[in-house]
Design a protein around this nucleic acid. Structure first.
Length: 247
DNA sequence: ATGCATGAGCC
DNA sequence: GCTCATGCATA
């Protein structure tokens, strides 16, 4: 196997048992310093990939991590459009609220009108409140002829708009149909446990070497570059806080 | 407002 | 690969 720690700071983690770190994190830190643990935890990363340079297709080079796309559905899938919506629970119909602020790449993907009204839509509006109250005569002479026939169509259209506005919320892992050359920067969200481990490492060694960063990255199942950047940003943050604290 | 990413300039 | 400044996506 690879022989980590050939440097002079191999046992910096051994002596940490002061009140700075909790025991679990300290042990985790020590574990990096000793050897690579074979038991990797779950899949903590919430992101998929970081390269959006219009030429991918090959998996991450040098990263043997198998990361299935996991995401949190809270009740609706992107494929579920059969939703028994009650009559207008949402008032502001904004079916195109995609990436909002700062979006200078204004491209609105597939947004097709309600071509077919499913039975659910019709049913929901029928059971909602159907009022064919006034009937009058065919020649009573009020309202345009056939406008009451348009009302269900409009309502169905609204409900279709709602449904599509909802299933428009597809996961960020979905195959995006971006125009060629359009890159959206992605933020890797580091989960809380991993973040706490990183903070534990940082507390004992704010400037780890490349090998150490690689070891930490492997143990936490994060990309090495993510860990490296995290340490850089953490140093920046610490400087800022120090600067803000003296005024 | 916070936190991850990127790029310039440097060593 | 680091700092520093800034951009930009989230919460």
């Amino acid at each position: 196997m690879k022989n980590l720690l050939f440097s002079c700071q191999g046992d910096i983690f051994s002596g940490l048992n002061d009140g700075l770190l909790s025991r679990a994190e300290a042990l985790a830190a020590v574990d990096i310093g000793k050897h690579q643990a074979s038991s990797t935890p779950g899949l903590p990363q919430l992101k998929h990939d970081m390269m959006y340079h219009h030429s991918m297709g090959a998996p991450h080079p040098g990263a043997p991590n198998t990361r299935p796309h996991q995401m949190a559905h809270h009740g609706m899938d992107g494929l579920d459009m059969l939703d028994p919506i009650s009559t207008s629970t949402m008032t502001t119909l904004a079916p195109m609220s995609d990436s909002s602020a700062g979006g200078h790449g204004g491209h609105h993907p597939q947004l097709h009108g309600p071509s077919v009204y499913g039975p659910a839509a019709m049913n929901s509006m029928m059971t909602g409140h159907h009022h064919h109250h006034h009937h009058g005569g065919p020649l009573s002479g009020h309202g345009p002829p056939g406008h009451h026939a348009l009302k269900p169509i409009l309502q169905a259209w609204l409900e279709e708009a709602e449904a599509q506005a909802k299933n428009k919320r597809r996961d960020p892992d979905a195959p995006s149909v971006l125009p060629a050359g359009e890159k959206k920067r992605k933020r890797t969200s580091i989960a809380a446990p991993e973040k706490r481990s990183l903070e534990a490492y940082f507390a004992v060694q704010p400037r780890p070497s490349g090998e150490k960063i690689a070891a930490i990255a492997e143990k936490l199942d994060l990309k090495k570059n993510v860990v490296r950047v995290w340490f850089c940003n953490q140093r920046q943050k610490q400087k800022r806080m120090k600067f803000a604290a003296q005024h």
